[in-house]
Design a binder for these strands. Structure first.
Ligand code: MN
Ligand code: MN
Ligand code: ZN
Ligand code: ZN
Lengths: 142, 142
DNA sequence: TTCCTTATTGATAATAATTCCTAATTAATA
DNA sequence: TATTAATTAGGAATTATTATCAATAAGGAA
């Protein structure tokens, strides 16, 4: 995700209004390393800005997705949002729900190769590994 | 996915009952190259075996997932089932909903590397590219 | 084959994340 | 400050999936 100023400028330029709700959501996403759900974003933001509704969170996330400022991923039927929009691997802990990022240079090559082989026009990619994180895995090994 | 006989044998061995419903679902998944939703599986199977309910389809898919005979993936809020359980790339057409497979040898290496870097115990992987298939992409290029 | 036990099924109700709807609010501009 | 169209809040609607449970039938024993 880019910096706040650029985001604000580009949204305003396209005729979108800069509301406190949108600022709060973008600000949170810019600062977190987390991959929060809509619900969590709502909860966190309410502490500082109590006047943000869940529907506004959803609508803002939709806008940010369209502007390619966040990616949406699905973890067990719940959408999780990722402000880290470069190609990378998301590691999902099936116990605590945490998601960690791992960079891997070859992902872009793989994507290009797959596009060639399949003749698809590729617009989005998602590389996801699930299991147990270092904290949780001890609990699941006999 | 393995062959029908092995699947039947291993389910029976573990005390699961072999019902016509389960046979029909496994049979369909074995034969299709498709990545069907629960609803589609239900519709297709009903033609041959009208006495299969949607809840049974869901429960059977749950069982097959636990036995690692199918993978579940999510496409726009709907679960899609993949009987091709080796590591591969799924290409999702955002227009017609079709999913194509592309093999890529380096996926396993990437997975191993990511596991080492992150200290995760990895149990599942999903490599997904979305865009427009060769049939659909012409409609989306000005 | 017939009978028993209990896993499985089918039908429907419940759940939960997301989307839809609309009157009230407010950002942007002059 | 007044105007106006975009946005918001909050609740209703939607929809895929899960839960519930009485009826059924698979598999084993006699
Ligand atoms: Mn990430
Ligand atoms: Mn596949
Ligand atoms: Zn964990
Ligand atoms: Zn297509």
């Amino acid at each position: 995700m880019q910096q706040m100023e650029q985001i604000v400028a580009s949204l305003r330029e396209e005729g979108f209004r800069i509301t406190p709700q949108r600022m709060a959501i973008v600000d949170y996403l810019l600062k977190t390393e987390d991959h929060p759900s809509a619900e969590l974003i709502h909860k966190v933001i309410r502490k500082k800005y109590p006047m943000v509704s869940l529907s506004t969170v959803y609508k803002t996330l939709e806008l940010l997705k369209e502007k390619k400022l966040v990616n949406e991923m699905d973890v067990e039927g719940e959408a999780r949002f990722d402000a880290h929009t470069d190609e990378h691997i998301n590691l999902v802990c099936m116990n605590c729900g945490k998601i960690d990022d791992v960079d891997e240079d070859s992902l872009k090559d793989i994507q290009v190769k797959a596009a060639r082989k399949s003749k698809y026009l590729i617009l989005k990619s998602s590389f996801e590994l699930s299991g147990y994180c270092s904290d949780c895995k001890s609990k699941f090994q006999a």
